[in-house]
């Protein structure tokens, strides 16, 4: 039970997120109204994705230093879970946008063409595709050592590409998406209200820990599979 404390923490944080996220007080903003509660779910997906990609690239760098195969395995599986969270972020964002950005008076496809041009969406899509390329690159190399080394180097490039794709370019260009000025969601003075911060930060932690939990399971499973294959 001692090493499982963080899993219990995950469950507690997520239960808190769901209850406080739906019942807690939120500011009434035009257009957003109650949908602002999506902050605890949609935005957390992206935060979890960024943290998981960060963990992945740290494993890749450590792999290049030590050439230990288990580090390469961890890097790959953390990136995989990161992509999953990114896709969930994209999907939830699509739902949210269609009820806040889309003009109800014109056909949904017409507003889609303007929404899809939003630099934040394109940046996120580029980032996810770069990570999809990481998976394809890995699986196309048969030699185990070569695969580990090349994909570790590529993982560093992919992570570096996150900076322009999701952190710099969307803030330079005009966008419908909130969080362009300063440090979105982390700026204590001007950004989200104090009530929301009380839910948002635990929510980020909870979702991220859930991602870590899933990845840990995948790693342990992969260890068993590799053992069976005699690797």
């Amino acid at each position: 039970m001692k090493k499982h404390w963080w899993k219990i923490l995950t469950v507690l944080l997520l239960v808190y997120t769901f209850i406080a996220g739906l019942l807690g007080p939120v500011p009434r903003l035009p257009l957003l109204q109650e949908t602002i509660r999506n902050l605890y779910f949609h935005v957390c997906m992206w935060f979890a994705m960024m943290i998981l990609f960060m963990v992945s690239v740290v494993h890749s760098i450590r792999y290049l230093n030590t050439l230990k195969p288990e580090l390469d395995r961890a890097a790959r599986l953390y990136a995989g879970t990161g992509i999953l969270f990114g896709l969930l972020g994209y999907g939830t964002g699509a739902i949210w946008a269609s009820f806040t950005w889309a003009d109800p008076n014109i056909p949904i496809l017409d507003s889609f063409s303007t929404i899809a041009r939003d630099p934040k969406l394109i940046g996120a899509a580029v980032a996810l595709l770069v990570y999809a390329a990481y998976m394809i690159l890995r699986d196309s190399i048969n030699d185990i050592d070569k695969r580990a080394r090349i994909s570790a180097v590529y993982n560093i490039f992919a992570f570096v590409l996150l900076f322009p794709a999701i952190w710099i370019l969307p803030r330079v260009l005009p966008s419908l998406h909130p969080g362009n000025d300063g440090n979105p969601a982390l700026d204590v003075k001007n950004d989200i209200s104090a009530d929301m911060r009380m839910v948002f930060y635990p929510a980020v932690l909870g979702w991220t820990l859930l991602g870590v939990w899933i990845t840990q399971l995948k790693i342990r499973l992969q260890v068993l599979v590799d053992k069976k294959l005699g690797l």
Binding site: K7, W213, I214, L217, R220, L221, V223, L224
Partner: peptide
């Protein structure tokens, strides 16, 4: 997830 965790622990 807990069930998966237990199953994998058993296999380990």
């Amino acid at each position: 997830l807990i069930r998966l965790d237990r199953k994998i622990a058993k296999m380990e």
